[in-house]
């Protein structure tokens, strides 16, 4: 991975984390969280751990869907 790509995906990670921390609304937080996840998966693929990347990419949405079950109750 060259520096430009590293900068791009690192920027995705930092942007996603910052937005997740700063947002108030749970839905907006979850959307920002998926920006963070999008920045993290390329790092796994770049190492060549493709089976791990596949599994993590399938597991991460499940975790979000579990959170959504609780968010419904908190919504006004």
């Amino acid at each position: 991975m060259n520096e430009l790509l590293l900068g791009a995906f690192g920027a995705l990670l930092v942007l996603g984390a910052g937005a997740t921390i700063l947002e108030h609304d749970p839905y907006k937080k979850i959307i920002s969280l998926s920006v963070l996840i999008g920045g993290a998966i390329p790092f796994i693929v770049d190492r060549g751990l493709l089976d791990v990347a596949t599994a993590v990419a399938l597991i991460a949405p499940l975790s979000t869907i579990f959170i959504l079950m609780a968010v419904r109750r908190a919504a006004p």
Partner: peptide, 20 residues
């Protein structure tokens, strides 16, 4: 609770990158 639960994912992904 929801805010904390969602924020908990951030250090979890951090630990994931550290293990990576």
């Amino acid at each position: 609770y929801i805010t904390r639960l969602i924020n908990l994912e951030i250090p979890a992904w951090g630990l994931l990158l550290l293990m990576l």
